[in-house]
Simulated scan of single mutants.
Amino acid sequence: MSAASVPHTGPHTGPHADPDSAAPDSAAPGAAPAGSRRSLAAALFLGSVGAAVVLLASGQVWAEGRAPVGGGALPLQAEGGDVTGLPTALAVVGLAALVAVFAVRGAGRLLVAALLALSGAGAAVAAALGAADRSALDEEAARTTGDTAATVQALTHTGWPYVTAAGGALILLAGLLALRYGRHWPAMSGRYERDAGPRARGAAAIDPDRPEDLWKALDRGEDPTRDR
């Protein structure tokens, strides 16, 4: 047999071709890129940890001082919530936005992601401004001494306001990741929408002479008496 009579078979058309070689080297349609999966995990981690840090640090002592009483001085302390309640409130808003970002799509997801970022930024700024605040202890000194003109003395601040600000920055980073990569993230209802089609097409035929088929149809929410 001459060489011209031998049929030419390419690497993808021959009878012994490797079936894996014919498959395209690409991800399945609708699959999230690896980068978006990493950004999703990072946003969840940063947002949840940041909110926890803000809530924890806001309950710690931010400032200490003394109020003059008679011939002595009364020690006073002010927690983060006494100085400003904004970081705590915004951390709760950030947590809600972090969950809600998976329940919406399109423009709604961008809006929720922006809210997440703004919550973190607001918590960080409020905590930073409260790091040097003395009004909370001045009010405490006036209330303790009964003198409206009394002010706190020997005022010192702790590092907890800056820890709170760092937590707010983590929430901000989570929001920025959601703004940048959120359009690739899955939504909560996506799995149920994908499963609905095949389940409806795969419904088994009902035999009216078999009671067990009738009961199964009723369990699936179908009408076994309709014409098929």
Rank of each mutant, 00 (worst) to 15 (best):
A3L: 14
A3C: 00
A3N: 14
A3K: 13
A4M: 12
A4I: 15
S5K: 11
V6C: 03
V6T: 12
V6P: 05
P7A: 06
P7K: 13
T9L: 13
G10C: 06
G10R: 07
G10H: 13
H12L: 13
T13Q: 08
T13R: 14
T13W: 00
G14C: 00
P15F: 06
H16V: 06
H16M: 10
A17E: 10
D18F: 07
D18T: 02
P19H: 03
P19I: 07
P19T: 03
D20W: 15
D20Y: 14
D20C: 01
S21G: 08
S21Y: 12
A22S: 14
A22P: 09
A23E: 13
P24I: 05
D25F: 10
A27V: 13
A27C: 11
A28E: 11
A28I: 05
A28R: 13
A28T: 10
P29G: 06
P29V: 09
P29Y: 10
G30K: 02
A31E: 15
A31V: 12
A32V: 11
A32S: 04
P33A: 06
P33G: 00
A34V: 12
A34N: 00
G35A: 07
G35K: 07
G35W: 03
G35S: 10
R37L: 02
R37P: 03
R38S: 11
S39M: 11
L40G: 05
A41M: 06
A42Q: 01
A42G: 09
A42F: 00
A43Y: 04
A43N: 02
L44A: 13
L44W: 05
F45Q: 07
F45N: 04
L46P: 02
L46Y: 08
G47K: 09
G47A: 10
S48Y: 00
V49H: 03
V49F: 09
V49Q: 07
G50F: 01
G50W: 04
A51Q: 04
A51V: 06
A51L: 04
A52S: 04
A52L: 12
A52P: 00
A52K: 00
V53C: 11
V53K: 00
V54P: 01
V54F: 02
L56N: 08
L56V: 15
L56F: 15
